[in-house]
């Protein structure tokens, strides 16, 4: 009977741990589901990206063109941030990579961006 009590005690402790883990993992922030798990993060084949931009006669950026987006990234989201002094964001844009990849162009950045202030670009390609 003592042995049985020990087994039961151990089992209840194990069960409580599983239940607590499960309960913690199912916590939610109001309407946002929360899940936990492992993810294998890889690139869709991007080694580097390089943009060019067009301007209007006032020197404001009218279009950013990014060539050679890999076809393997189709369906994923390419984001570009126009970067100014002190690494500050001057504007940004994003779009889903089309089938076949290739050249992507952006013409709206959420703000007027002076080419003279533009010191670089940040890129991100993300998707499942």
């Amino acid at each position: 009977m003592k042995l049985l009590a020990k087994i039961l005690g151990t089992a209840l402790a194990v069960a409580a741990t599983f239940a607590a883990t499960g309960a913690a993992a199912s916590l939610a922030f109001t309407s946002t589901p929360l899940s936990a798990g492992n993810a294998s993060v890889t690139s869709c084949g991007v080694a580097s990206l390089s943009a060019t931009r067009n301007v209007d006669n006032a020197g404001n950026v009218t279009q950013v063109t990014i060539p050679s987006v890999p076809a393997a990234c189709a369906g994923e989201t390419l984001s570009v941030t126009l970067v100014g002094a002190a690494n500050a964001s001057l504007g940004s844009a994003s779009a889903v990579v089309p089938a076949g990849g290739g050249t992507m162009s952006f013409s709206s950045f959420g703000a007027t961006v002076s080419a003279a202030s533009l010191l670089g670009y940040r890129y991100a390609v993300a998707g499942a």
Partner: peptide, 21 residues
């Protein structure tokens, strides 16, 4: 319950880079 909470996303793609002018 614990098993359901440990479901994984198997193949998430992420790449980030930058370009200086």
């Amino acid at each position: 319950v614990a098993y359901a909470a440990s479901l994984t996303v198997s193949s998430w793609h992420l790449w980030a880079g930058s370009q200086a002018l």
